[in-house]
Amino acid sequence: MANYLIALALVLVSIAQVAWANFLVIGGVIVPISVIGLWVVTYKSEFTNVAVYAFLSGLTIDILSADVFGLRSLALLLSVGGISLINNRFDKSNLLAKVMALVVGLVIYQLVVVSISLILK
């Protein structure tokens, strides 16, 4: 039951990312709150579950966007992959490691979205 609730919450966060995009612009870049949501969940759930959440969140954004279908799913999956890699290397209670994992996740997401959008358009 908890898994379904987490998935539902993350889908809502993904919809909010699209709906609130104009309030989430920092330095000309829209902050992907879905990555932040998944980053929080990586400390509560198993990685395989987080991967499913990332895929569902990405699909939600893909449906609501005009981008290449599957791009956001791929970006979020790679992003949670990066976050988990950092989490596995460092102690999960280490605050610096947590911040680093979030930064890595955000950077991977933006890099994947921007680079693939540029390549495919």
Binding site: Q17, V18, A19, W20, A21, N22, V25, I30, P32, L64, S65, A66, D67, Q110, V113, V114, S117, L118
Partner: peptide, 12 residues
């Protein structure tokens, strides 16, 4: 809403 397109944004 607004749609994040990586570099640019689109109005939905």
């Amino acid at each position: 809403g607004l749609n994040d397109q990586g570099r640019s944004v689109l109005v939905v």
